[in-house]
C-alpha cells in the first residue's frame, strides 16, 4: 500500500505499524518523533498504531539550527 512519508509517496507493507516503519528506516526511535496525519504519536503507541493507505506520516529528528 502507499503512504505519504515525509511528503513523498512510499510503498509499505499492509497494516505496517509505526514501530515497523522506523525499523525499516533504520533510525533509533529515541532520535525521532512521529506524526500521523498531523497528530503526534507518542513513543509507547508506535507498536500499536497501524498505517492505512494514504496516511500522511512525518518522521522528524534534530538538525543544526539557530
Amino acid at each position: 500500500m502507499q503512504i505519504i512519508y515525509n511528503g513523498e509517496p512510499r510503498e509499505v507493507a499492509e497494516e505496517m505499524t509505526i514501530a515497523e516503519l522506523l525499523a525499516e528506516l533504520d533510525r533509533p526511535a529515541r532520535q525521532v518523533a512521529v506524526e500521523l496525519n498531523r497528530e503526534l504519536i507518542s513513543r509507547d503507541q508506535h507498536v500499536h498504531v497501524r498505517l492505512r493507505p494514504g496516511d500522511e506520516v512525518e518522521v522528524v529528528t534534530l538538525a543544526g539550527g539557530g
Partner: peptide, 10 residues
C-alpha cells in the same frame, strides 16, 4: 545550544 526540528535523514 539551539537546534531545529526537521524531517529525518539529516
Amino acid at each position: 545550544v539551539t537546534v531545529a526540528v526537521r524531517r529525518e535523514r539529516q
